[in-house]
């Protein structure tokens, strides 16, 4: 794939928090419509990577570049990145007491539409859209009356993230451990929601700790993160190898091969 056809190109990305280096040179290329899985042990920097892509200011990028649709992504604010089509499903979705779940989502959608020069949706049209998307993740209508993530179970929160993704219709979706804390039924529901959102125009970076999710969401590429870097990349079979041998061995082999 040529450089200009890539949706996302990450080169030697370094990031720190409070002076501590977390990302230590990440390289990654994602084409339109591709699904990339990022796996790796806890603390290896997966969430940090996701949040740096989404523009969280907590992390300081100290080196490297990120091109998104050929543009310098790091120059954009989080809202601008959202406008450009980046969506991140949070590992730990945040509660916003007193703010209605649907009100929040409509505000977000209309903010995006406005900045893209599209017409805003009125309450009725939005509700119709929301109802249709709620079906994708088998979300109960009782969700709609509740405050953003407040009092949601772990599984409900994750479903809510995918519901938001379905409504906001991003070009690049980054799913951060959307599978963790889900029982097998919930996992299937969420995965089928995600699969129904796969398209040639939408790329996904699916971060997961377990290969279980990848049985349902089959990735084009699998990357293994260790200590702030991508230590191995391969096809979907890499996920299985990881499952059998564990991270230590997979990473270790790479260190030994150096």
């Amino acid at each position: 794939m040529t450089r200009s056809e890539l949706l996302l190109r990450v080169k030697d990305l370094h990031a720190t928090v409070g002076g501590k280096e977390i990302l230590r040179g990440i390289d990654l290329e994602v084409g339109p419509g591709e699904v990339h899985a990022i796996m790796g042990p806890n603390g290896s920097g997966k969430s940090t990577f996701a949040q740096v892509l989404a523009g969280r200011e907590t992390f300081e990028v100290t080196k490297g570049e990120v091109l998104y649709q050929g543009q310098d992504l790091l120059a954009l604010s989080p809202e601008e990145r959202a406008v450009a089509g980046i969506f991140m499903a949070f590992q730990y979705p945040v509660e916003i007491p007193g703010v209605g779940n649907l009100y929040f989502l409509r505000t977000a959608l209309n903010a995006l539409r406005k900045r893209r020069g599209e017409e805003e949706l009125d309450a009725m049209d939005f509700l119709a859209l929301a109802k249709q998307k709620m079906k994708l993740v088998a979300m109960d209508e009782s969700f709609t009356g509740r405050s953003v993530n407040e009092g949601f179970s772990g599984g409900e929160k994750k479903r809510n993230e995918i519901f938001q993704m379905a409504v906001l219709d991003p070009r690049l979706a980054i799913l951060d451990e959307t599978d963790s804390g889900l029982d097998i039924d919930a996992l299937r529901t969420v995965a089928s929601g995600v699969n129904s959102l796969r398209s040639k125009d939408r790329a996904m970076i699916v971060i997961t700790h377990y290969q279980r999710l990848l049985e349902y969401i089959v990735p084009d590429r699998v990357h293994v993160m260790g200590n702030g870097r991508i230590v191995r990349s391969g096809g979907r079979e890499l996920a299985l190898e990881l499952e059998q041998k564990g991270y230590a061995q997979v990473e270790g082999r790479r260190e030994a091969a150096r």
């Binding site: 907590t58 809202e79 969506f87 949070f90 929040f104």
Partner: peptide
């Protein structure tokens, strides 16, 4: 950050959160 990631400006996010609080 949760709000801005979804495309809501920081200013609107603050008043949304405060209004929710009240």
């Amino acid at each position: 950050f949760y709000c801005t990631q979804r495309g809501i400006s920081e200013e609107d996010a603050v008043s949304m959160i405060v209004n929710g609080f009240c």
